[in-house]
Simulated scan of single mutants.
Amino acid sequence: MNTFTGIPFAAATFYAELAKNNNRHWWLAHKDIYDSAVRLPLESLLAQLAPVFGQSKFFRPYRDKRFSPDNSPYKTEQGVFASNYEGVGFYLRVSAAGLSTGGGYHSYSPAQLARYRTAVDAPVSGEILVKIVKSLVEEGFTIDCESLKTVPRGFARDHPRADLLRHKTLSASTLPGLPKWLDTPAAAQEVAARWEQLRPLVDWIVRYAAP
């Protein structure tokens, strides 16, 4: 029996305070809040959504400081990823700003990037993606991507889908923030509804540009 009752507003407060006290002493003194307001509610939520959206992965709360001048040890958000496919799926984040949901892919291989560009270049699959992206923007999603400054070599600069060809990664997200339903069981349905809006994008990537 699932016991998801919502994501407490205390989760946002926890991350707001962490941003001001990003050190091991503070983290250890408040880890019980992380467990009760962040980790356990999200684990319960993802277990409830897993039959439809796939198994989940929790991103580590610890920062990788090896390639960053920022020495703060902890991430100021908790990210999770749910998927039935390797590397492509649905995202959820909790931070001081509240809840963020998204979907798509954030990393790629050269082979995947080649498949993506071929699919964008092709008239049928390319136009399908144009319609998906346009629909998501109209529904209030932000298109997130790592992209080139110019159209990649081998494609015309005036290509009708030049903007999409420049993308190296592709995802979309929305920030519900701190709505009244966040700390209620209805949060599961709200997250599921937003992920369903993203399903056409995820399915397109799986079909035409899988890792």
Rank of each mutant, 00 (worst) to 15 (best):
L46R: 15
Q48A: 15
Q48T: 13
Q48E: 15
A50I: 00
A50Y: 02
P51Y: 04
V52K: 11
F53A: 00
F53W: 12
F53D: 02
G54P: 06
G54L: 03
G54V: 05
S56P: 11
F58K: 06
F58V: 03
F58M: 14
R60Q: 02
P61N: 09
P61E: 03
R63Q: 08
K65D: 11
K65R: 14
K65G: 12
F67H: 07
F67D: 09
S68L: 08
S68C: 08
P69G: 11
P69L: 11
D70C: 03
N71W: 07
S72E: 14
P73V: 06
K75D: 01
K75H: 13
T76G: 07
E77G: 02
G79K: 05
G79V: 00
G79F: 01
G79S: 14
V80Q: 06
F81R: 00
A82D: 05
S83K: 01
Y85D: 13
Y85T: 14
G87D: 06
G89S: 04
F90W: 13
Y91V: 00
L92D: 07
L92W: 03
R93E: 13
V94L: 11
S95L: 01
S95C: 05
G98A: 00
G98V: 00
T101M: 14
G102K: 09
G102T: 07
G102F: 02
G102M: 07
G102H: 07
Y105T: 11
S107R: 15
S107H: 15
Y108G: 00
Y108Q: 07
S109E: 08
S109I: 03
P110T: 04
A111R: 15
A111S: 13
A111E: 14
Q112E: 13
Q112I: 09
Q112D: 01
Q112N: 06
A114Q: 13
R115Y: 03
R115E: 04
Y116W: 03
R117F: 06
R117L: 01
R117T: 08
T118H: 12
T118N: 11
V120T: 07
V120M: 04
D121E: 14
A122M: 05
A122I: 08
P123L: 09
P123F: 10
V124S: 11
V124C: 02
V124Q: 13
V124F: 10
S125T: 15
G126D: 03
E127F: 10
